[in-house]
Nucleic acid binder design. Structure first.
Length: 485
RNA sequence: GGCGGCGUAGCCAAGCGGUAAGGCAGAGGUCUGCAAAACCUUUAUACGGCGGUUCAAUCCCGCCCGCCGCCUCCA
């Protein structure tokens, strides 16, 4: 099995991935702040790390995967206040929404999904350690991290302190020693929700939860820490500073950051108001959930994780059509091989090897997909001939490859009978306005016309259905296949 | 201003020193009453521009042009 190499944001190089304990991976990925539904940016990020998670599992690693849920945050408080409801009614709503979205996308659950509210004590303890060590100080009711006390600051995001200095600001009401310093604990103002702490009631700063939770579950040194590119600075830089200041150990050996999803080439973000929600994508999809899931996954996996992906109808249509071809091939293949036990399929072979090599090379999913297509074009002629002669590649290896794609990429898992081809040119689909009884009636009429060789009438009926979003595909014997677009 | 990324066929997208993977769309064909679907074949003297290094550059270096991101909450 080829070894896995990954791009490390810290060194800015692709390096062999070597966990502290061979065969065991401690990975921590930043989850979401639960004040709104997740958008496609979150979808891609979670999908990238899900793929990595699956790759580790496939290569026999034990994976200690932790993904946090931020349920203490100013935006949550603001939303709750505006709605006049308790904070936990907001967080409960969006935690549910988050889990529903992850489920829809087929994201494998991490081993642990801690929430910030469950780790207040650990955070307080960590802050006290920093205070005791001189890395933090109290000012007003707040506690700040003293950035200048950590010599490696800026090392992760490759920022120079002086350059950062010029952009940093002190908000009104803050009493920082230095504009660069960031808050570890925010003292509560009158009327604000708060948690007790030795240094006064308040709430934790944004970064401290990740330090506390990862330390708790995974110890001082992570093998891998991931998140979106936008978390590199300041979030990850600050996490690293406070963690290393507290433990004196390397916080993360490998840092991974995924690229953005854009619309009209612009970053999709809540502040720009150009987001597209995951739930909306699924709810508006003309396809069943598992089909939509594969569709979205294929779309994102078609671009390397560090590059931006522009979310367009054209790209979506292309992804759906490409997937259709793979599914078609798989359906024929499974049918052909139905008498043979998949358990006896080969475990090795050049196809399987190329696929794994692609994934192992810094998660090169586009190349992995091309391996799938390559297998398809080699096996198709044999399949089309009804399995005559000797196949150009071992069909059982192709079956094994498709199954491998299912385990690692979450693709080609929908049963052939449940796959829905076609369409995909944009979501927000219309669906058909025709009731199925009406469709059946028109199809029957057309069949009668065809039998009578009244093709003019038959074609008119077909056109009518087509206009209503129903495409008919005649089959050799029997009734036509009905496809909704 | 500081730091970083990107620019490859109509569109999307790999490759990153040895002479351009893959997908979508298009074209032609097989099949079909005709279609659709499926299948087969086909589609870049060439990688933003100009210099340089090299036996050899899309891949390395420099400059230029264009686009994007981080530096503030953000996956």
């Amino acid at each position: 099995m080829s070894s896995i190499s990954l791009y490390n944001s810290f060194s800015r190089k692709v390096e062999p991935f070597r966990p502290q304990t061979p065969g065991e991976v401690k990975m921590y990925v930043c989850g979401v702040t639960v004040y709104d539904d997740c958008h496609l940016g979150h979808a891609r990020s979670q999908m990238v790390f899900d793929t990595l998670h699956r790759l580790f599992l496939e290569t026999g690693h034990v994976v200690h995967y932790v993904r946090n849920i931020t349920d203490i945050d100013d935006k949550i408080i603001k939303k709750a206040t505006e709605a006049g409801v308790p904070i936990d009614s907001i967080t409960r709503t969006y935690i549910d929404s988050f889990f529903r979205d992850m489920g829809r996308m087929g994201i494998l659950s991490p081993a642990k999904e801690p929430r910030a509210t469950e780790f207040l004590a650990s955070m307080v303890e960590l802050i006290e350690r920093l205070l005791a060590g001189g890395s933090a100080y109290r000012a007003g009711g707040d506690v700040y991290f003293r950035v200048k006390s950590f010599s490696g600051y800026g090392g992760l995001s490759h920022q120079v302190l002086d350059d950062l200095q010029s952009g940093a600001r002190i908000e009104p009401g803050e009493e920082k020693e230095d504009p660069l310093d960031f808050v570890l604990w925010k003292g509560a103002k009158p009327g604000e929700p708060s948690y007790p702490a030795p240094f006064g009631p308040g709430r934790p700063g944004w970064h401290i939860e990740c330090s506390a939770m990862s330390l708790h579950y995974l110890g001082p040194t992570l093998d891998l820490h991931g998140g979106g590119m936008d978390l590199l600075f300041p979030h990850h830089e600050n996490e690293r500073a406070q963690s290393e200041a507290a433990t004196g150990r390397t916080f993360a050996r490998t840092w991974m950051h995924n690229g953005f999803v854009t619309t009209s080439q612009e970053k999709m973000s809540k502040s720009l108001g150009n987001t597209r929600r995951i739930r909306a994508f699924f709810e508006e999809s003309p396809f069943p959930e598992t089909v939509t899931r594969e569709w979205l996954r294929y779309f994102f996996l078609g671009t390397h994780y560090r590059s931006p992906v522009d979310f367009t109808d054209g790209g979506l249509a292309s992804a759906k059509n490409a997937l259709d071809g793979l599914h078609q091939c798989r359906a024929l293949l499974l049918d052909r091989l139905s008498g043979e036990d998949p358990e006896s399929d080969p475990r090795t072979g050049s196809l399987l090897l190329s696929f794994m090599e692609a994934l192992s090379a810094d998660l090169d999913t586009p190349v992995a997909l091309s391996v799938l297509h390559g297998a398809k074009s080699r096996i198709n002629p044999w399949l089309a001939s009804g399995g005559a002669g000797s196949p150009p590649v071992d069909p059982r290896e192709v079956r094994a490859l498709f199954s491998l794609a299912g385990r690692t990429l979450g693709l080609l898992t929908t049963p052939p009978a449940a796959w829905v081809g076609g369409g995909g040119a944009g979501t927000g689909s219309r669906g058909s306005e025709l009731a199925s009884e009406e469709v059946d009636r028109l199809v029957r009429l057309r069949e009668e016309a065809r039998k009578a060789r009244d093709f003019k009438q038959a074609d008119a009926l077909r056109d009518e259905l087509r206009a209503a979003g129903i495409v008919l595909e005649d089959q050799p014997g029997g009734s036509p296949r009905i496809r909704r677009i």
